[in-house]
């Protein structure tokens, strides 16, 4: 997730200054000539990017990548997935091993600049939270003074929690454990009072507890983790394509277009919908894509709401509510500019 060893960052950053800038349009041409999009993916993050027991990829990030493929090829499965670790993900993008990175990467200033990446529209707003045993009787993270905290090492998670405790004049005892599974087990067996991780993970961890009712997630979110797909610096056309593929899913939900009703919507008299679905041409040409690119995304992958519910929503094992990821009309942050 946000695992990022400082030394590697520095080394990679130094290297990247030497990398030549790409030409506009180059990536799209290369992708079309190759016949598939190369996507950097997490590989072991349930709900975001993970294969099922048949080796088929599923997840929010996977569906984002499928939207890009649907936009470029009119087929959501012209993708080569390349599993990347937190340390290798940015180099893979820079060395052109992948065309787009859909690997739950947090957008930060230094990554946007020094690392030579361009993050596009956020496809999931995450944040760090706390999971506690109910019997602790704590109702707010502010009451956690002196608590022992289970946390993964070398991540921004570890840094965030230390910052939070210091900012609130509280003491903490970090219990640092390298592996997720062991971390969870240490927490369930009572080796620490609190477990901290990204909010998207906490519900899943709670779900595997011996008795989930014994645990609760505190309301406080102590960090901002806007997770977004990323592309290389220097190819603005490709950046636009990836950006508007994400935005098309968000806009479709906003306009009430779903994979089920998209064919009826072709007959809609609303000029916004007509432009969006390519009935009135213009958008596709502007991006260098087929006029039906947005139609293809919605038809083949779904709108943002469908994708969210399918992968991480309340009916999945992760049981995540929309929260910040709701449409702007519903108090969330998902907001697409006009498609015209």
């Amino acid at each position: 997730m946000k695992l990022m060893k400082a030394g590697i960052t520095a080394a990679v950053a130094t290297m990247l200054f030497m990398a030549p800038a790409a030409q506009a349009g180059e990536t799209l041409d290369a992708v079309k000539a190759r016949g598939f999009v190369q996507v950097g993916i997490n590989g072991s993050l349930f709900g975001f990017g993970m294969p099922d027991d048949k080796g088929v990829w599923h997840g929010l990030d996977v569906d984002t990548a499928r939207a890009v493929s649907a936009a470029v090829f009119g087929d959501p499965d012209k993708i080569k997935y390349i599993p990347l670790t937190a340390q290798t993900r940015f180099t893979a993008l820079q060395s052109k091993e992948v065309d787009v990175l859909c690997r739950n990467a947090t957008r930060t200033l230094s990554r946007d600049t020094e690392l030579g990446l361009n993050f596009v529209t956020v496809n999931y707003y995450d944040g760090q939270g706390f999971l506690i045993p109910t019997k602790l009787g704590v109702k707010s993270a502010k009451e956690l003074d002196g608590a022992s905290v289970c946390v993964l090492p070398g991540t921004t998670t570890e840094q965030n929690v230390a910052d939070y405790f210091r900012a609130n004049n509280m003491k903490m005892k970090p219990v640092v454990i390298e592996e997720n599974t062991e971390l969870n087990q240490a927490f369930f067996s009572g080796r620490c009072d609190v477990l901290t991780s990204d909010a998207s993970q906490l519900a899943g961890i709670r779900a595997v507890a011996p008795n989930p009712a014994d645990y609760e997630i505190l309301p406080q979110i102590i960090s901002k983790e806007p997770l977004a797909p990323a592309v290389r610096h220097g190819d603005d056309q490709w950046r636009d394509i990836v950006d508007y593929s994400v935005l098309a899913m968000i806009a479709a939900e906003d306009m009430g277009i779903t994979s089920a009703n998209v064919d009826e919507m072709l007959k809609s008299t609303d000029p916004n919908v007509q432009r969006f679905l390519g009935v009135t041409p213009g958008n596709g040409k502007a991006l260098g894509l087929d006029e039906k690119f947005a139609y293809n995304i919605v038809k083949m992958v779904g709108n943002y709401g469908e994708v969210f519910e399918r992968n991480v929503g309340v009916n999945t094992k992760l049981q995540i509510k929309r929260g910040l990821n709701a449409q702007w009309k519903d108090g969330g942050l998902m907001y697409a500019p006009p498609f015209k």
């Binding site: 590989g43 072991s44 993970m50 390349i82 670790t85 997720n180 599974t181 899943g204 094992k317």
Partner: peptide, 24 residues
């Protein structure tokens, strides 16, 4: 550690699924 899925990694991936997380 470089993201190749040998037998160890495929097993770990299976364990990342919340359904099977507890049976490491």
């Amino acid at each position: 550690i470089i993201g190749l899925f040998d037998i160890m990694k495929t097993t770990k991936t299976t364990l990342a699924n919340p359904e099977w997380m507890g049976f490491s």
